[in-house]
Design a protein around this nucleic acid. Sequence first.
DNA 1: TATTTATTATTGATAATCACTAATCAAGTA
DNA 2: TACTTGATTAGTGATTATCAATAATAAATA
Lengths: 241, 241
Amino acid sequence: MTPSRKVAIEKSSDFGKDFPVPKAERHSLIRPSLEDEIASAIQEGILGGQWNPGERLVEMELAQYFGVSQGTIRGALKYLQAGGLVEHRPRRGNFVISISEEDIRDISLMRDTLESLGAQLAAERISSEGEARLYEVVDEMRQASKQHQRQRLLELDLRFHRTVVEIADSRLLQDMYRRLEGPALLFLRMADGFYQEPQAIVDLHEPLLEAICSGDSARAYELARRHTDPDAGRLTGRYRK
Amino acid sequence: MTPSRKVAIEKSSDFGKDFPVPKAERHSLIRPSLEDEIASAIQEGILGGQWNPGERLVEMELAQYFGVSQGTIRGALKYLQAGGLVEHRPRRGNFVISISEEDIRDISLMRDTLESLGAQLAAERISSEGEARLYEVVDEMRQASKQHQRQRLLELDLRFHRTVVEIADSRLLQDMYRRLEGPALLFLRMADGFYQEPQAIVDLHEPLLEAICSGDSARAYELARRHTDPDAGRLTGRYRK
DNA sequence: TATTTATTATTGATAATCACTAATCAAGTA
DNA sequence: TACTTGATTAGTGATTATCAATAATAAATA
């Protein structure tokens, strides 16, 4: 989602010619454009099952449905394309992605890869504000675990790592995690939280939280790469049958 | 770049309801849209120095320059946004990215991360056609090295790994590598190939090529993660002074 | 049944337009 | 000098209308 991204203030040491950074840049609490809002709405629709995987998204239909113009819809769809939830086929249209077995493996692999990198970086530059945000998520996890809300727990899992990635403070990593998150959420909702015990997720994130907050980047890195060895095979294996 | 992506044919085992895959899907050698062509042209302009980092890209100016409509330009700019070369600020416009010190570190880190993952996967599913493509790139590397074309060598380096990533055959990974490649190329061209000896690059890729082709994924993984330890510090350090 | 031909729906692309917002500059004020 | 305020202007955000090109669908033919 991240409809409004923090604008990185360039420093004088940047590459290339110096183009002035306008004053207004600093205080602008960016209001999301209509396009962004529509994009979020469509995304929610996809994740909520209003549009199914593989289904075609017709521009004019959406325009009427949301009461906006075709151009706005087109922009919103482009945004979703970048987020990986919508696939564009030239002269054919836009389609909600389908998730294949290979995609599931990829998602798991990339989660490991990006989340472990994120954890490592976050441990190096955690702040008290970041700590508070992470603690909050883990608290919600504990509650969800007690009430055996598996679905919610898996989504909190993703939210935890998105927060970690934001703390890691890397534009590249954040964009990539956004590309990953949409498909991951779609898969989770379709698969309906079928793997891992609730408590196991909490047990995994508590030490990870601690490692990050204590600045132990190596340990954070190791703790965050979890699916790879034990789970990945079991996951796809379990799906296959 | 990848203006036309291979369309993944869904299999019946996919998630979600089954929506029929039309016949035309199979034989369509997708012609790139005008938008894609314009996007490539702008990208070349950015990498070629026609537009400088931080510079504003005014829609109507570009529309006149390329002789297309404003809408087409807007679409092309969205594509470049996803590729990470253009930054969009709501109600302000589109700007060529500036590359900060942090970005340089991030690019290096992400290259390691994605390229090593790519190498690992490629080793697991290399084909004779893929082998040929990789050998070709390494051959070009050898030539460039002999003629001390440092700049070209660094770009071949990126091309090698993009090829590896294509062989790895993961939509997610490919998209992410595309997000990385634009900024990486921009940085390389601005920095004008200032680090690493030509021969060192060849010496690195020859064993990597061999590892991938022999299916030794673990070795391929290790060989591909190179910048991290020895170079990253030296790189940013050298830049800083 | 398979292939060709028409029909229709939808995207690709353009053009013209208007509201709204940011950046700029100038004048006035402390 | 420094700091507002106000007017000006450039440029995006968004709409509407339109037309050509093309894919998907249905119908007709062999």
